[in-house]
Design a protein around this nucleic acid. Structure first.
Lengths: 337, 337
DNA sequence: CTGTTAGCGCTTTCAT
DNA sequence: ATGAAAGCGCTAACAG
């Protein structure tokens, strides 16, 4: 029977190439200066032997684990998943593993430490609350995503809410609307940012916001319903409503439609979130919505952590771009596919 | 200034406890037989020093990486995410890291090998196609989730489609419906399973399926629309429709409603997927739907891989339970919250 | 520019 | 039941 085909080691390559192990290490690590011919000889020998360095030995020798600890507030939450998956995918592409902890007790911290994670990514819940900074608990770089850390020196990645407001509003103006109302939540950072974006565009266009101020309520569908009723009851003259999120938009649309308002002919509606609406019970076609590109938050945070000097980067909040997805609630389209 | 507080090592604990390093190793690994007093002395010394073994050294010494390679077909796909997150969370809870690869080229295989992953989890796309078995490419245990491997010796975890059909149908009968139609896709394993569950329940109740057979089309909303139109046009006498998924249900509901049919009073509708319907444009309340509990697939597969002898487990398909979530499309509820 | 020499911290035979 | 000692495979001073 054939002898056990032991995986080739560095020393095997060294022998094959007729050099010392350390030379092989250098040659393959791309590191220190060395003669091109030697390097080539080593590389060829390595390929001939199909050599793959033992990552475990490498980690041990260098003290780096190529693993990042990821801490979520609620990993299974609908909006958290894209962020987590985005980060995991970006890290995986760079041969970085993810160690997930849902919550961050002292024990979790110890686990991360024990595994010698190279860095830590904290994923918030996307709500208005600040994320409690845990940077001080770790010796490794920490990044925050889908929420803003309350630590002044931290770097956080969130979706650009002002841009969301701008995109939505500009789209409404682009399709010729001039009487825009805004229905959103109150006391929420995300809501306020969207309002700011909205105002900026309206101001630049010299247009007033219908009602003079946003209609503030909650993030729930029920508020959209309520707001819609008020709009109808008061006979408010609008040709477009920008809703703070898709749920509000959904409730509003239901009421408008039941009230005989044609969408988008009479009133155009745009939301924020662009969540796949497969669960829609009685859908129109598709809602026009601003996609916060949640996956990109995880990806960007991961890439930040992988950058040469994450800890040295300028602290602060990084607002990442979002994207308008046009649907039938603003532009009459072909029958839904 | 205080001397660098080097992390305590095994040898430090040994010294503190007055024993040899190997004794400490045994004591903490729970392994071989040894005097209870010695073990206790070691454990106490370890706690006193707040000793955490260096995972990297452990991995190196044992050759196990406590990392599982996860391969997805399309990680960012809506339905894949819950599976991936479920697996990642379950693994993280057991201090197992995840190395994600979206796709599985030869290079990816090499990467997994290089990192000495302890096992591999392949996540399908939930569609009918079999997953190509890669078990033979690895020396480590492999599990499949959200799809069925085409390798006869493999173990795959999927959501129980027959149960989905049973739950949905039984619920319809439970609320007093007797004239049930079924609108679903064709040429699809998942669809066929749901049909089987449906038939079982109807047969047991001595009830016929309206139309004699399921109405087969695609998984898309448009098919739900089309099927609804046919139902109305033909004046089919039904008081309940079980739809193969929520998209079909959504399209069907739209048509029924526009056609003056009251839901659920005249016709009750149930779907499958239970995807959060935040994006719903003109929602009723909430669709009654069978939740396939996708997260549990990832979790179960992960736990399988962590079990003592995954490779020794009986091969085959593990159908995991799903869950009925009652909404307003079958049971009139309070106004949507 | 390349080779020699120590480790990295834990596990694990093998003696005692 | 415990200790001594030999690695695990790679990296990184340090010499030459």
């Amino acid at each position: 029977m054939p002898s056990a085909p032991r995986a080739p080691r560095l020393s095997d390559v060294a022998q094959e190439a007729g050099v010392s192990p350390s030379t092989v290490s250098r040659a393959l690590s791309g590191g220190g200066r060395m003669s091109a011919t030697t390097r080539m000889r080593v590389v060829e020998a390595a390929e001939r032997l199909r050599f793959r360095p033992d990552a475990l030995a490498q980690f041990f020798a260098t003290g780096r684990s190529r693993t990042v600890g990821v801490m979520t507030h609620k990993a299974h939450a609908t909006f958290t998943m894209p962020v987590l998956v985005g980060a995991t995918a970006a890290l995986g592409a760079k041969e970085m593993a993810v160690l997930l902890s849902d919550g961050l007790t002292r024990e979790d911290v110890e686990r991360f430490r024990g595994r010698r994670v190279d860095s830590l990514l904290v994923i918030g819940d996307g709500l208005g609350e600040h994320i409690r900074s845990v940077t001080a608990d770790f010796a490794v770089p920490v990044a925050y995503a889908f929420g803003v850390s309350d630590g002044p020196g931290d770097v956080s990645f969130i979706s650009d809410g002002v841009m969301a407001g701008r995109l939505a509003t500009q789209h409404l103006l682009d399709i010729g609307r001039t009487k825009v109302a805004h229905v959103t939540a109150q006391g929420d950072r995300a809501a306020d940012e969207r309002v700011a974006g909205l105002q900026g565009v309206l101001d630049a266009a010299g247009l007033p916001l219908v009602g003079g101020a946003p209609m503030r309520g909650t993030w729930h569908r029920a508020w959209g319903v309520e707001a819609g009723r008020r709009l109808l009851a008061d006979g408010v003259d609008v040709d477009a409503v920008f809703c703070g999120n898709d749920q509000i938009a959904g409730g509003l649309l239901e009421v408008l439609r039941d009230g005989g308002v044609r969408v988008p002919d009479d009133v155009a509606v745009v939301g924020v979130d662009n969540w796949p609406d497969t669960g829609s019970v009685d859908g129109e076609r598709r809602l026009t919505s601003v996609d916060p590109l949640l996956g990109s938050l995880g990806r960007a945070a991961a890439e930040h952590l992988l950058s040469p000097d994450p800890a040295g980067a300028a602290p602060g909040v990084r607002s990442l771009p979002c994207e308008l997805v046009v649907g039938d609630s603003t532009v009459p389209g072909p029958t839904s596919r």
